[in-house]
Design a protein around this nucleic acid. Structure first.
Length: 229
DNA sequence: GCATTAACGCACG
DNA sequence: CGTGCGTTAATGC
């Protein structure tokens, strides 16, 4: 989101101008398209990634079902693979491109550590990233324990809109959205439930959608709806 | 009731 | 023309 902007503002006062683009400019970057994997698991152990642009899916393999499930997604300004900071044999989720092209800086973990020691702005970014990830997973866990599935879908849709939706007048639009199946695993429910909940919301005229986009007509009302029991 | 899975038909992209 | 979606029936808690 605008984490990087917040960082810039804060570090401007104390340590002078801080630009991530500049800081990471000498590291190689990769462009990944929709569905493309960033790096093989055993390789990605050695790196931290910085998402310059686009959206990346975070997937892990569900052995019983024999398929990939979506754990979450990342947006512009996020640091990915931070797990490798503390674990050198972590089970690292696969990172795949989603919707549009994603631009990713590739930073070897040892060089990343050095940069963090020296650079206050980067420290801010790391802490912001970490605390965001922690609250996200806590919220998701709470939701799973306390809400019924239809609420979870609605709440997911709210978060999804706030994170990647674009404002269009009083409405919001999500272009090239996740499939119902993906939204299902993101809100811990089945694909069919997502379909029916979305169609309910469509009938209430709170949203409209096709396979290409989701239009949120009334975000305020959707937020209220997500809290109903 | 609330939710999940299987299954099938259908049509969007 | 494939896979993503809409629906319904069967099953479990």
């Amino acid at each position: 989101m605008n984490a990087s902007i917040a960082i810039n503002n804060r570090s401007d006062r104390r340590t002078g101008p801080f630009s991530l683009t500049l800081l990471f400019s000498n590291f190689p970057q990769r462009i990944i398209k929709k569905g493309e994997t960033l790096m093989k698991n055993n390789l990605s152990k050695g790196y931290i990634f910085y998402l310059v642009e686009g959206i990346v899916k975070n997937l892990s393999y569900h052995a019983e079902k024999g398929k990939e499930v979506v754990n979450g997604f990342h947006t512009k300004g996020e640091l990915l693979n931070l797990e490798v900071w503390s674990k050198n044999e972590a089970i690292i989720p696969t990172l795949k491109g989603s919707s549009t092209k994603a631009i990713i800086k590739i930073i070897p973990i040892e060089q990343f550590r050095e940069l963090v020691w020296k650079n206050q702005g980067l420290q801010q970014l790391v802490f912001t990233n970490l605390s965001n990830k922690i609250s996200k997973s806590q919220e998701r866990l709470q939701r799973l324990l306390l809400s019924k599935s239809s609420q979870r879908v609605k709440q997911f849709l709210v978060d999804y809109t706030l994170e990647i939706g674009q404002r269009v007048g009083y409405e919001h639009v999500i272009k090239k959205p996740f499939t119902h199946e993906e939204m299902g695993s993101l809100s811990d429910t089945s694909r069919q439930t997502v379909t029916t909940v979305l169609n309910e919301l469509k009938a209430k005229n709170l949203i409209h959608f096709t396979r290409r986009y989701i239009l949120i007509r009334d975000l305020e009302q959707l937020i209220i709806e997500a809290k109903k029991s």
